[in-house]
Every structure is written in structure tokens, then in C-alpha cells.
Amino acid sequence: MSWKIPENLKYTKSDEWIDPQTGKVGITDYAQSQLSDVVYVEIIVSEGETVNKGDIIATIESVKAAADVYAPVSGKVVEVNEGLADTPEVVNSDPYGDAWLVRMEISDPSELDELMDADAYRKYCEERED
């Protein structure tokens, strides 16, 4: 198995990515492949809302699974990808691009250090494929 794991992002154990530069958050290629065909995305936080690391920010459903998406770090939600509701399939086709969920203003950049880099995340994905 091989998954796209961009070098410039940080990753969580629950398979979210965050771009330290832009503050965009989404789910990883590994996560979308586990879910299979995504049919529904619901972002449950709104612009201006403050979230803590680990809060549920979105729910993603496929035909056979449902996953909650957690905030990788604490901060303020400054933008929500409204268009995703109508095009849930881009979570499968472009998980790191058009399928970003929210953009955050990171309140404590030191929280980023607790996340995995691309190498660590790749190992973590491989471990789970027995």
C-alpha cells in the first residue's frame, strides 16, 4: 500500500492533517482510503468559533463508515469550506487540496510539535496494515 503523505504537513493519530503555513485542516489519503467512497461531509463548526485540540469539527460519511474529524490543534476557525457539502467525492480524489475542511488560526504553535511529521505518519500507517 502507498498513500500520498506530503512532507510539508503535520499529522494526527486520528488521521487529520494540518498545514502549519496556511492553517488548513483535512483528512489524510490513508483516512479517505479506509472510508472508501465518501458521500457526505458535515462541518459542524462555524467561522469565528474557537475550538480546542480534540474537539469534533466535522463528520464524514461513506457508504460503509462514519468518521468524526477532530481539531488537530486549538485555535479559531477563520474559514469553512462550504462547497464540500455539494462535492463530498473530492475527499477521495483530492484529500490535501480541494477537500480541506476548515482553516484555523493556530493559538498555540507549540501544539504543532506534538503532531507527527510525514515520516512518522507513514510508519504509523504501515503499522496499521498488518
Binding site: V39, E61, V63, E89
Partner: peptide
């Protein structure tokens, strides 16, 4: 049967 089409 196409389940994805049904859900979308």
C-alpha cells in the same frame, strides 16, 4: 447494486 450512487 451501486450503493455510492444511491447515497449521493
Amino acid at each position: 447494486v451501486d450503493e455510492v450512487r444511491a447515497a449521493r
